[in-house]
Design a protein around this nucleic acid. Structure first.
Lengths: 250, 250
DNA sequence: GAGTGGTCTAGACCACTTG
DNA sequence: AAGTGGTCTAGACCACTCA
């Protein structure tokens, strides 16, 4: 029935096995055909069958064990690909006018009581920015940004009065890992004022920590940001598939 | 210096190239060595170099174009792997006592005004559940669950008075895709009562839609759930790496 | 001990695309 | 037209581990 007969053989094998797993015909713990059996079934070389099975394993749908065989992976994990967009690109992609305003800028050492700043700067200087993003003139997010100047010295000369730090960092600073924390908070007086909402209104807060790993495997903090969105104005959307998360960005 | 000399060759090639990208030595748009050049550099067969480059492409770090070559991918996308755990497993993993209570259960057709229910049931019957999850006796989440009985007929006989529907569905119902929507809301009177918080308090709301794709590529809705967490009691954490998202679930 | 997956080789043909 | 990646073959040796 399918018009996909032109697909590469390794992909057809992959798709056939994936279909049997996703449909429930093969259940967690069930054994898949061995590479040898697939070679016979599809009249192909072992590398071709291997590639299909390896890709299933890479996506977490199956587990491969020497001597034992290939098995459908455990109860499918709940992991999702969450798109956390660059705000400027996101707003423009929706056809709205993007606005940006720098509220404050300081170069200073980390504050004594702030563990996050201490961890980021590790004794060095910090660039501390507060700024506001808007879409079609309506406040979209308040951003509290900290950049470790030891890791990104060029940030000190960058013109963050006219350019949001997120996009600049993304374009110019390599990074190797990051962590998000998403939570709901109530707007305090300052946030309510900046975002034009009632004090106590529910907001979505996204905290992001970004680091770089050097050759020796040591992690160096690059930036730390808290973005707060009015709850009514912003959703985060995540798509996911069984097993290891998979998705396109863009 | 590294003690990783025992790693497979394709992985060493992969790691070397990944390091040059993540360190910033190779910048977006830069060209990587061709497969032929890597063969010469590492004294290996072309398939081995191909595997390293293919894996980089699979993770979104590079883009490969015939005749042109392999290039560092565009400005690294902001996509993260978000772990959205099965609540029971998550609570128990934290060493807390998990509690579950069914608040209401109905088998009925979709409600006239509810587009989400219409889309899920498509004329068929619906199992509508409201329930409450708790950790160490404190309310953790209110769950409003809808299950399409056409897609999961076994749900009608399942004992959701003593067992949360999420885990049962995950274990017994195959699925092929899902979508999350995360937002901040203020607790209404009923939510405040169930969760033991003040009316108007900020809450994290996670809406999840899960579907199954059949052989013909048609999507059939399986379940739709809204989970609401007290903002102060729950965070979602996402980890990510440049390019295509990658992560472990567990 | 036998069968599995993990890796690798040294070729091959093809499609595509770009210089 | 030439060089690139995409795919595939028909072998090979090894490590592991389960029966």
């Amino acid at each position: 029935m399918s018009l996909m007969a032109e697909a590469p053989l390794h992909r057809r094998i992959y798709a056939a096995l994936e279909g049997r797993i996703l449909s429930g015909e093969l259940r967690p713990g069930d054994r898949l055909p061995s590479e040898h059996e697939l070679c016979a079934d599809y009249a192909c070389a072992r590398m071709t069958a291997n590639r299909a099975l390896s890709e299933l394993a890479g996506r977490g749908l199956v587990v491969r064990r020497r001597r034992a065989g290939t098995f459908v992976a455990a109860p499918r994990a709940q992991s999702a690909v969450l798109a956390i967009p660059d705000l400027e690109a996101e707003v423009k992609a929706r056809g709205q006018a993007y606005g940006y305003r720098l509220l404050s800028r300081q170069v200073r050492p980390p504050m004594a009581g702030d563990a996050a700043e201490q961890a980021l700067a590790d004794g060095g200087q910090l660039l501390a920015l507060d700024c506001l993003h808007s879409a079609d003139g309506r406040p979209l997010a308040h951003e509290r940004r900290r950049i470790a100047l030891a890791a990104a010295p060029a940030a000190e000369a960058a013109d963050f009065a006219s350019m949001a730090p997120g996009g600049w960092l993304l374009r110019s600073q390599p990074w190797s890992g990051a962590e998000h924390r998403i939570t709901a908070i109530e707007a305090d007086a300052a946030l309510a004022d900046h975002l034009g909402i009632a004090r106590g209104a529910a907001c979505l807060a996204v905290e992001r920590r970004t680091w770089r790993t050097d050759e020796a495997g040591r992690e160096t903090g690059v930036t730390h940001v808290w973005q707060v969105f009015p709850g009514a104005a912003y959703d985060l959307v995540a798509r996911f598939t069984p097993g290891r998360a998979e998705g396109r960005h863009g």
